[in-house]
Write a protein that binds this DNA or RNA. Structure first.
Lengths: 208, 208
DNA sequence: ACCTGAACACCGTTCAAGT
DNA sequence: ACCTGAACACCGTTCAAGT
């Protein structure tokens, strides 16, 4: 009787934790796009089709890996001032997303942070709570969070995609202002203006 | 001598315009994700590998199709007031992106609007120009545009992804505010608050 | 219970050979 | 010049059979 629960049948050759650890190894070595069912199975030394007994499909695998990562995000020290608390929470979310460029395809999943649980949900709670403290109705507070979320996801996705490709300089066709900027555009686009936009959104969305 | 330019060799069986028209047919019928090199060739009645004589690779194909679409976006009537002009231009961009859900994967390409040319670049010019008119330096105006772009791309990508999946209700674990909202979250998330966030961004980013 | 190889139905792309 | 089929190096997933 070697197994702890269930006592008949062929013994397992792997487990969910082992699979997630192997996936993480592959991601760190070659990036998420190189993680295929077949390569993952090879890494574990098992048959490719065996994975389907531990995970519904490849999409569920990615969500599981992301959840592991999300659980490890440390909650930041939160300032007293509710507006600053929103800035800190949003910046923490953005920082975490920036650390998972391989998962970019999943960022726009509806309710992603809700699905991840743990610190991710806590950060949503911090933002919604702080908005309410600033005088928002709960409904308005949700809209505030969603606006920040859109902005943050957009920024991080564009940033991730920009790292590789050569920057584009706008062509001077009926575009006096763009022409005036000309070759300065790529340098400007490379600047980190996340917090600037974040603060603008917050000040524009909260009462007073 | 049937060909107009070049007079030796085997005659072409297709052309770029034909390829783009066929791609558009497939997209309208089954969605972009169903457009494969092989299916596209079949639609044209040619060998799959022939496509590589007209297009560098599949990625270039998508950019070409997107450019065609972008060229057809009509420029909106622009208000006198520069702030309203920004709202109208940004909303037009958002509207256009919403009409191409199949191209969502390409939205975060760096300098997408610049690459597309035509009306797309004109709308960037409108926003940058209006920001300058409001008192921004050209540098600041670029940052304003980028913030609006991040917000718009994030909103549209999340919206596109949300249409299919079931909404998530936050779990009540140490999250009093989220618990209080509870099942109202999906309904709130379904509301269109784009313009609200857009105006907040604009008022927070422009001088005065 | 769990694992497996074979098989299915695909991909994007290269390249030597043909016209 | 341009087109082509064969081939390469892969995918995710299903399923009957095995232990």
């Amino acid at each position: 009787m070697p197994a702890t629960h269930g006592r008949t049948g062929r013994p397992p050759v792997t487990s969910r934790p082992e699979i997630l650890a192997a996936a993480r190894r592959l991601i760190d070595a070659d990036g998420w796009e190189k993680v295929t069912v077949r390569r993952l199975a090879a890494e574990l030394g098992i048959g490719a089709t065996t994975l389907y007994h531990h995970v519904r499909d490849k999409d569920e695998l990615l969500v599981l890996v992301l959840s592991e990562y999300a659980r490890q995000v440390p909650l930041p020290v939160l300032p007293e001032d509710p507006r600053e608390r929103i800035v800190v929470a949003a910046t923490t979310i953005r920082q975490a997303l920036a650390g998972w460029p391989w998962a970019a395809a999943e960022f726009t999943t509806d309710g992603l942070l809700g699905r991840l649980g743990g610190p991710a949900v806590q950060l949503v709670e911090v933002i919604v709570g702080a908005a309410v403290e600033c005088g928002c109705t709960p409904e308005r507070a949700v809209h505030v969070f969603r606006s920040l979320w859109y902005y943050t996801v957009g920024e991080i996705l564009v940033r991730i995609r920009s790292r590789a490709r050569p920057p584009v300089v706008f062509a001077p066709a009926d575009t006096p202002h763009l022409s005036a900027i000309g070759e300065r555009w790529p340098a400007l686009a490379a600047q980190d203006t996340y917090e600037m936009g974040l603060r603008a959104l917050i000040s524009g969305l909260l009462p007073e």
